[in-house]
Every structure is written in C-alpha cells, then in structure tokens.
C-alpha cells in the first residue's frame, strides 16, 4: 500500500508540475470522491490496527501535499495569465490625454481674489458701492470740494452735474462709515473710471481695491505693519516696503508706497527701471474731516485707508507689458492664467 501511495504522490505532483495540466481534473483524479487517493483510503479497512494510523497519516500527508501543489500551481497560472493580459493591455502613455475643456480665470479676478483672501484673513469684509456715484461721495465727502485743484488729477466722467462715474473706490469708505459704527475693517474692490484714452499703460476704466480700518487707537505704524503683510503675501516673503510722503485730500498724513522690486530684489534692473522700487499704492490716516462728516468722532476714533490698483498688481505680478490685453480677452492670453 505504501508503494501505491508513493506512486500516486509522484504521479500527481508530476502532473501538476506539467504546465499544461488541467488542475481541476487532476484534483478530481486523485482527491475526488472516486479519486485514486480516496479509493486507497477506502481500502484501509483491510489493514492491521498498527498499520492503519501509519498509512492514514501518510495518505493525509500526500493529500495535503497534492492540495498545496495544486494551489501553488493555480496561483502561478493565474499570475501568468494576468501578466499576459496586462502585457496585452499596454498603452502608449505619451499619447496626449483627452482634452477636457478647462476654464481660465482672468488675471484681474485672480489678483482680486488673492487680495480678498489676504484681507479676509485679517478680519476684513468686502464692501461694495455704486460705480455711478454722487459727486458728494466721490469728492465732497472726501474733503475735495468743488473747484478743488485735486479734482484735476482725476479727470472725471460726468453723467449730470451731480452724478458721475466714480474716479476712485474711496466713496465706498464714506458709504460704509455712514452706515457702520467702528470697528470697521473693509476692503472694496471695484471698477473706477477716468477720462484717459486707451494705451499700453492707461485705460478709461480700471479696478481699484480700497481698504479702510477705523477703530480706537489705530496708528500709522499699524498701517505700515498691515501693508507689509499685504506686500509679502502678494509679492513674496522677501518684499520690503517704502513710504513716500504724498498728499491725498482724504488722508493726513498720506503716503505713496513702493515695494522692493521682486525681480531683482531691490538691486535695480530693467523691470524696476533701475530704481529697485516699484510704486504700488497710496494710503494714509483717514482725515478727521472725513470721519466727522460720517459722524465718527475723530477725537475717539482713528483709522487708515489705502487704495491699490488691481491692474497695476496684475501687470507687475505677471509681467504683462500692455494693459489693453486685459480687456481684449484673447483666449491665447487668458489660457496662460
């Protein structure tokens, strides 16, 4: 009997090892109900009591061995088959992907959003105001009475004697202060209009972003600190700012602000016309006239305001050399953003 078992074992394992073997048939042939090993085991009744456990043990070992062999062979075959399948499925990965239409945001919107996110992070809200505005809000309430020479610097489009296209976003300051008690912390991006003919650096319509903070104890040092934060966020951590005294009727003191050139880092290059600095915005401490005009007591509250040209930031940031591109909306231009 031992010999029979040994033969079955050898035969079965050999068959399994044969690559073309049908494993299921082999299993049935040896291990099935009518299989060879099963029928050997059935004849165990004729064995002596001493032999029976020995042969039984042997037969079980052979069964386990065959089963293990079948299993490993089966896994091997599956792996081979999968391998073949994967090989057959190989594609050329350098073939371009499907062109899923992709929309591109406008550079002005990208900059505006960045500004908004920066200031929202500092607790600012986004205020809005009309573009067709009363003379009062655009000028008079901002300490620019009729026939004030400062009106000359902003050639204004008029609708009627009293209504105009706002020449700055500053009227939103007044509208906000009229309606809100301090603390006030807003920015107001939007369109402004000036009577400038279109060329590479001028447009009769452009975008500004106004900023206004009014609270107790707001200082000029705070204004500087906040603009530093803004400049770093918009133009990179290395950016430095420089204040130059200036005059705006609605702020006092007023300043123009330059940022260190982000191309050369301030050493001077073609981009910054060898200055090392690039003019970026105007700002100042809110004039007490403007505060009192909005029923905010300048003895109790102080504040600062700033206005930055969104086009200016976009042109600088993306090295765009012609402002007209922003309004032409050529897809070859837009697709780059």
């Amino acid at each position: 009997m031992k010999e029979t078992l040994a033969r079955i074992r050898a035969e079965a394992l050999a068959k399994i090892a044969d690559t073309s073997a049908d494993l299921e048939q082999i299993r049935i042939q040896y291990l099935g109900k009518k299989g060879e090993l099963t029928s050997v085991l059935r004849g165990m009744g004729n064995l002596s009591a001493e032999e029976r456990p020995v042969i039984g043990q042997l037969a079980n070992d052979i069964r386990t061995a065959i089963e293990a062999a079948i299993q490993s062979k089966s896994a091997e075959l599956k792996a081979k088959a999968l391998d073949l399948k994967l090989k057959a499925e190989k594609i050329d990965v350098t073939v371009p992907g499907e062109r899923i239409p992709l929309g591109h945001n406008h550079p002005l919107s990208i900059v505006q959003r960045e500004l908004e996110e920066t200031f929202i992070g500092l607790g600012f809200s986004i205020a809005e105001g009309p573009e067709v505005e009363y003379d009062y809000y655009n000028f008079q309430a901002l300490n620019i009475p009729e026939n004030h020479p400062a009106r000359d610097t902003q050639d204004t489009f008029y609708i009627t004697d009293n209504i105009l296209l706002r020449s700055q976003t500053s009227p939103v300051q007044v509208r906000v202060m009229e309606k809100t008690k301090p603390p006030i912390r807003i920015i107001s991006p939007g369109r402004v209009y000036r009577s400038d003919a279109v060329d590479a650096t001028h447009s009769p319509l452009f975008h500004q972003c106004e900023g206004l903070v009014v609270d107790k104890g707001i200082t000029m040092a705070d204004l500087k600190g906040m603009l530093e934060l803004f400049a770093k966020r918009m133009f990179g951590e290395q950016t430095k700012i420089r204040f130059r005294p200036h005059h705006f009727p609605f702020t006092e003191p007023s300043a123009e602000v330059d940022i260190s050139c982000f191309v050369c880092g301030g050493k001077g290059c073609r981009f910054c016309k060898n200055e090392g600095w690039i003019e970026i915005l105007g700002c100042g401490m809110v004039h007490p006239f403007v505060l009192s005009n909005c029923n905010i007591d300048p003895e109790v509250y102080s504040g600062f305001a700033f206005g930055v040209g969104i086009e200016r930031v976009a042109l600088l940031k993306y090295h765009i050399d012609d402002m007209r591109l922003l309004y032409e909306n050529d897809t070859r231009f837009l697709d780059q953003f």
């Binding site: 809200s125 912390r185 104890g217 200082t219 500087k224 600190g225 003191p253």
Partner: peptide, 26 residues
C-alpha cells in the same frame, strides 16, 4: 503730525499690527 513725521522719516516708523476689537469679516 505729518510735518513731524515726514522730516523724521516715514520709513523710520516701526511697523506694528493693530490691536483692535475682533471683527467677523469674510
């Protein structure tokens, strides 16, 4: 204040961050 600070130097002002009542923003 402007007269004083423009001669002293705007750029010598040490920057600070404003300490103000929290606002909701957004």
């Amino acid at each position: 204040a402007e007269e004083v600070i423009r001669i002293y130097g705007y750029n010598k002002i040490e920057s600070s961050s404003f300490k103000a009542e929290a606002t909701q923003g957004g």
